[in-house]
Design a binder for these strands. Sequence first.
DNA 1: CTAGCAGCCTAACAATCGTTAGGCTACTGT
DNA 2: ACAGTAGCCTAACGATTGTTAGGCTGCTAG
Lengths: 204, 204
Amino acid sequence: MSQVTGRANKRDAVLRESARLFAERGIEATTMRAIADACGMQAASLYHHFASKDELVAAILTRSDAHISGLYDAILDAPLEPADRLEAMIRATLDNFGHHRDAARIYYRDRAYVAESPLLTQVRDNAVAHDELWDRSIEAAIAAGRISPRFEAINLRRLLQELMWSTARLRGDAVSADDIVHVLLHGILAPEPGRGEPSHRPEL
Amino acid sequence: MSQVTGRANKRDAVLRESARLFAERGIEATTMRAIADACGMQAASLYHHFASKDELVAAILTRSDAHISGLYDAILDAPLEPADRLEAMIRATLDNFGHHRDAARIYYRDRAYVAESPLLTQVRDNAVAHDELWDRSIEAAIAAGRISPRFEAINLRRLLQELMWSTARLRGDAVSADDIVHVLLHGILAPEPGRGEPSHRPEL
DNA sequence: CTAGCAGCCTAACAATCGTTAGGCTACTGT
DNA sequence: ACAGTAGCCTAACGATTGTTAGGCTGCTAG
């Protein structure tokens, strides 16, 4: 049981390289031979680790899904103000990008594939539950008057998701999660009368 | 002599249907046969209108590129305050989504393809010029103190572009351009004293 | 020591890809 | 009236796709 070095590492390498290629070029545009080349092996050898291309994709997305699901569960149990819960969910999503950036990009990019793959029913079911959590959180924040009245709940969820997911395409060190949260929140939170922004004094 | 409606319209139908499929499934994941099916014709018949799949993609992206380039040229010639210029550029980008939503999604999604296609050198050159305009506009707005000091110019351009482009994936009637501008601007503009909601009116 | 199997290889499969060849039909200009 | 051709068709091409078959090598459990 100690000879794990050359064993599980190769499988991880396949996962990592294929995720990178899927994210950059698309699932269907990335051939098994291209993945094998990136891993320094032959295409047929990939099938020693994964039964099919679909299963390889499923392994990438399932791992990321487990991570974000855990984060959402913790938020679900926490007693948070509506606006704080919303910020926590944004930060959880961005944290997932930090750990599974390529998986997030694949999920975001190849949505039609994700919607049709028979191996991703669990991921899709979780996504539905996550969407409902988003909807409830946004509606609560709206009810609490923390969101600009120009937005409707359902459209705002989709807009927020698109905006968040798009940042997974940025290089990890380019823009911090704090910066992204700052952009998103100060656009959707209703301005509080009599209170300026906590961090910076306005200057002109 | 336009008594037959299905004549010259067929080429446009191919452009429209293929753009829709490319945007939803990806260029390489969309086969010529799938495009032909969507147009009610045979795959080989597509080659009567376009010499190759690459040329079909190029026709879609070039048409969109011409539109956005025209909008940018008008902004370039207009005497605008830095923040107003930035808002005008955001609105121009969103306006392009309204007219060429699928093309924008293709350009945004299949970036690796766009970067390599020999038929898209003009589109790529224009994109470089547009990026430089974005950089200059952002730097000017920063110099004028209109942007939160937490952002660096180069990273902010990329962030803004990702955020804008991602909204092309939304249904056209879901979120208005005004709403998107509101989200973006109030996250990046430094708060102005004594004003609740800044409402700029840039003219083109 | 040796049987077994993990891990990789080469070679090849059927299916599908973008594309081409060639033919039919109906309209057009003269 | 008739040649030309736009617009579509069927059939097929070679290349590439995901995948399978079968074999070699070296480590490991008993």
